[in-house]
């Protein structure tokens, strides 16, 4: 009787899709695991502490820009809680991904907010973000075909999105690391590229409990 509003939905799908492209194909438990030995080898090399802190350098090549865009900052990764992404240079801004929302703030003011209760895709975005930074092989295996190699303490993964909406946004992801993820390279379908390098990684022994509330 009163559900006239529902076809508003289709419009949001293509809009939210570029966010992560995670509108489909992300069924937990249904995806085949990565080749078992590769996944196992990567898993053996990784330390995945409950709290992880580190610094990042992001180099983004965007069509329409002659020079790459460089930014630096630090981040906090808390298993089961979320991700805090704090850009320091060229200017300060914060991005916080928790179970229930994605929130961007600048100078204490909210610039953008997406709630999981309204946009279920928020959870998927957050778990992708977490899996990439943490090197969660089984989480990634649900979304991507995994390929790669192991060499000494180090490892490399080439991630190709499984068929579905993710492919319309993301062409490929390269991941490199040892006991932590060190390097993430994103190749977007529209030609943009981002290289994220992580440094000074350290498990946090004195976490801030209120960080993701």
């Amino acid at each position: 009787m009163k559900r006239r509003g529902l076809l508003i939905a289709p419009v949001l799908a293509p809009v939210l899709a570029p966010l992560t492209g995670l509108l489909s194909g992300s069924l937990p438990g249904l995806a085949a695991a990565a080749p078992a030995d590769l996944a196992q080898a990567v898993r053996e090399r990784l330390r995945q502490p409950e709290w992880l802190r580190g610094e990042f350098t992001q180099t983004k090549k965007v069509t329409g820009f002659a020079k790459p865009l460089l930014s630096r900052g630090d981040f906090v990764l808390a298993r089961g809680r979320g991700v805090l992404w704090r850009t320091v240079k060229p200017f300060a801004s914060e991005l916080r991904l928790t179970r229930d929302e994605i929130r961007a703030t600048q100078g204490g003011q909210t610039a953008m907010r997406l709630e999981a209760a309204r946009e279920p895709v928020v959870r998927v975005i957050n778990s992708l973000m977490f899996s990439l930074l943490n090197g969660d092989v089984s989480g990634l295996g649900e979304l991507f075909e995994l390929d790669g190699a192991v060499k000494g303490a180090g490892w490399q993964l080439a991630l190709t999105p499984k068929p579905g909406a993710l492919r319309q946004v993301l062409r490929k992801v390269d991941l490199e690391g040892d006991s932590f993820v060190r390097r993430i390279q994103l190749f977007e379908a529209n030609g943009d590229e981002s290289l994220i390098e992580l440094a000074n990684l350290r498990p946090d022994v004195a976490p801030e409990p209120g960080l993701f509330q």
């Binding site: 966010l19 992001q58 983004k60 865009l69 930014s71 200017f91 991005l95 994605i102 953008m112 975005i125």
Partner: peptide
């Protein structure tokens, strides 16, 4: 900020 952040609106 939207340009630099890994997730934007």
């Amino acid at each position: 900020a939207a340009l630099y952040q890994p997730v934007a609106g």
